[in-house]
């Protein structure tokens, strides 16, 4: 359980396969009530009960932020992942009841911007769909550059181009079309804010180019949720709750703490928000830090860990939890 993550009991009302990899899931409240509005860029954490494993995966909401009847997410199937997306694709059916969190936004528009310049790669398009709906309703100025592997895999590209022909550019990798980033960043009016969501390589590329061209850090926004990765099992002592737990090969440390019935804070579950930061009381071994939150010094200090994505290899790890 975590600050800002109250739960919503919902029913799956529609499942729409978009292409080979991506499927849209729509939810309505099971009690027939209204869902909260949200702001473009927000995500929800979906609980997946798969036998005795519970997975909690964050997905960007891509429905209209003002639509209180239905939420939609789009899930890209990751055959090599730990199973969350496969569970959604293979096991979830229309009519199923699920639990999702209240929306949390770690990738909101800066509404002081004169113009919003959005760069999306692949499934990174989803937060922008909600943001564009929000901006279209308020007359906000935006430009979207969306790169996908091929036309077939460019989810929602047709819909976006049809609605906003002058604001949307699509690039297909298989046709060797690439975003001319330097040119694009160079000509933007003062007061433009830049947003990027996509694979890590793309985010790094865009941030580095923007920094090179003198864009202020405050005007560059990005969202990259890391999926927790599998690794060697390890044992952890939770000092406050006085428990010793085992983190399984395909389990994250956070999931293992939760499975032991210990309340641990989180928001993004993807190494980005900082909410799950946990103090290390003692250790003998090495950390596998994978988050974007701790700085290098903190990572080297052996005093902190982000249990949503990071792991440990060694003899003992004692956490202040």
């Amino acid at each position: 359980m975590s600050a800002g993550t109250d739960k919503l009991a919902v029913t799956v009302t529609n499942i729409v396969p978009l292409n080979d990899l991506v499927t849209r899931f729509e939810f309505q409240r099971s009690d027939g009530g209204e869902l909260p509005t949200f702001s473009g860029g927000a995500h929800t954490v979906v609980e997946m009960r798969d036998g005795d494993i519970t997975r909690l995966n964050p997905y960007s909401l891509m429905s209209d932020p003002m639509d209180q009847s239905t939420y939609a997410i789009s899930v890209r199937r990751d055959d090599a992942g730990r199973g969350g997306s496969l569970f959604m694709h293979n096991r979830v059916r229309v009519g199923d009841r699920m639990v999702i969190s209240y929306p949390v936004n770690l990738f909101s528009l800066d509404l002081r911007a004169r113009k919003h310049l959005m760069i999306a790669g692949g499934i990174g398009i989803t937060p922008f769909i909600a943001q564009i709906k929000q901006l279209a309703a308020t007359g906000g100025r935006f430009e979207l550059h969306y790169a996908a592997r091929s036309a077939a895999l460019a989810s929602y590209a047709d819909e976006l181009t049809a609605h906003h022909p002058n604001n949307v550019s699509i690039y297909h990798d298989d046709q060797a079309q690439a975003i001319d980033l330097v040119h694009l960043l160079d000509g933007q009016p003062l007061g433009t804010h830049l947003y990027v969501c996509g694979p890590k390589g793309m985010i790094d590329w865009v941030r580095a180019k923007a920094a090179d061209l003198g864009w202020p850090r405050e005007a560059v926004h990005y969202e990259e949720f890391l999926a927790p990765q599998s690794g060697k099992p390890f044992e952890v002592k939770l000092a406050l709750s006085n428990k010793v737990i085992e983190v399984g090969e395909h389990q994250s440390l956070l999931e293992a703490i939760e499975a032991a019935g210990v309340d641990a804070p989180y928001l993004c579950r993807g190494g980005a928000c900082g909410q799950c930061e946990t103090d290390v009381i003692g250790y003998d071994g090495k950390f596998i830090h994978r988050d974007h939150w701790l700085d290098d010094e903190e990572k080297a200090s052996g005093k902190k860990i982000m249990p949503c994505v990071s792991r440990f290899e060694g003899k003992t790890l004692v956490l202040d939890r």
């Binding site: 960043l185 160079d186 000509g187 933007q188 009016p189 003062l190 007061g191 433009t192 830049l194 061209l213 003198g214 864009w215 005007a219």
Partner: peptide, 10 residues
């Protein structure tokens, strides 16, 4: 000067 400037101006 500000009206004509682009992002990247310091």
């Amino acid at each position: 000067v500000l009206a004509d400037a682009h992002m990247g101006l310091q």
